[in-house]
Simulated assay, not measured.
Amino acid sequence: MTINTYQVHNVLRAYGRQLSTGKRLARQTAKETPAPADKITISTEARKKSVVDKVTSDIIDRIYHEGPNETLEKEVFKELEDEFGNPLSIGRKGTEMVFRAIGKRLGEDIQDLSQEDSDRLKARLEEITRDKVQQNMLQ
């Protein structure tokens, strides 16, 4: 049996077409198939921290926009006032939270605190709130 060169060329050409078609199909199916979602596992401590941070942020936001109305908000704000030594109120300067010190004589003396003092009080308010939220989660 004799095999001609044109028959060998036809077989090689057909094989080449199958290879290129297979590569195209593989690329196309790879694009169509969504990549498996990465699975992220979070430790229980990280989840607790995330929940505490979220609750703390919500409480601070409520205090900023509405004032201390709920029991926990009042506790936190009272502790901040006790540490500061004077009653406080919260105001806004643009988008920033600004604290005002209220004099002890029926609110006659209201004084805006400096931005540094307000930032320090805000940081302390966040710390106190975070501590209270953590304590309430353990109970």
Rank of each mutant, 00 (worst) to 15 (best):
T5R: 07
V8M: 15
H9A: 14
H9G: 05
N10D: 13
V11T: 08
R13P: 11
Y15V: 01
G16R: 09
R17F: 08
R17A: 14
Q18V: 12
L19Y: 10
L19A: 13
S20G: 06
S20W: 03
T21S: 12
G22V: 08
G22Q: 10
A26L: 13
A26G: 03
A26Y: 04
R27G: 05
R27T: 13
Q28C: 03
T29K: 01
A30S: 08
K31C: 11
K31L: 09
P34A: 12
P34S: 07
A35R: 12
P36W: 09
P36H: 03
A37E: 04
D38S: 13
K39G: 05
I40K: 14
T41R: 13
T41C: 00
I42M: 05
I42P: 10
S43L: 15
S43F: 14
S43D: 10
T44D: 15
T44G: 13
E45P: 02
A46S: 14
R47Q: 12
K49V: 01
V51M: 06
V52R: 00
V52Q: 06
K54F: 09
V55Y: 09
D58P: 01
D58A: 03
D58I: 00
D58T: 07
I59H: 01
D61P: 00
D61S: 04
R62I: 03
R62D: 02
R62L: 09
Y64I: 06
Y64G: 00
H65M: 07
E66S: 00
P68W: 11
P68V: 10
E70H: 05
T71G: 07
T71R: 04
T71I: 08
E73D: 02
E73M: 01
E73H: 02
K74C: 11
E75W: 03
V76K: 02
F77G: 06
K78H: 10
K78P: 02
E79Q: 12
E79A: 15
L80C: 12
L80D: 06
D82Q: 14
D82E: 11
F84K: 00
F84C: 03
N86R: 15
N86Y: 13
P87M: 00
L88T: 05
S89H: 08
G91C: 09
G91T: 09
R92A: 14
G94W: 08
G94H: 03
T95A: 12
E96I: 07
F99A: 02
R100P: 11
I102V: 13
I102L: 12
K104A: 15
K104E: 14
R105F: 04
E108D: 13
D109T: 01
I110N: 01
I110M: 15
Q111L: 01
D112M: 07
L113G: 09
Q115S: 14
E116K: 15
E116T: 07
D117F: 02
D119G: 10
R120L: 08
L121G: 05
K122E: 05
K122P: 01
R124Y: 11
L125S: 06
E126F: 03
E126W: 06
E127Y: 12
E127N: 11
I128S: 00
I128V: 15
T129C: 03
T129K: 01
R130T: 07
D131S: 07
K132G: 07
K132S: 07
K132T: 03
Q134N: 15
Q134W: 07
Q134K: 14
Q134Y: 12
Q135G: 02
N136P: 02
N136C: 04
L138M: 10
Q139A: 08
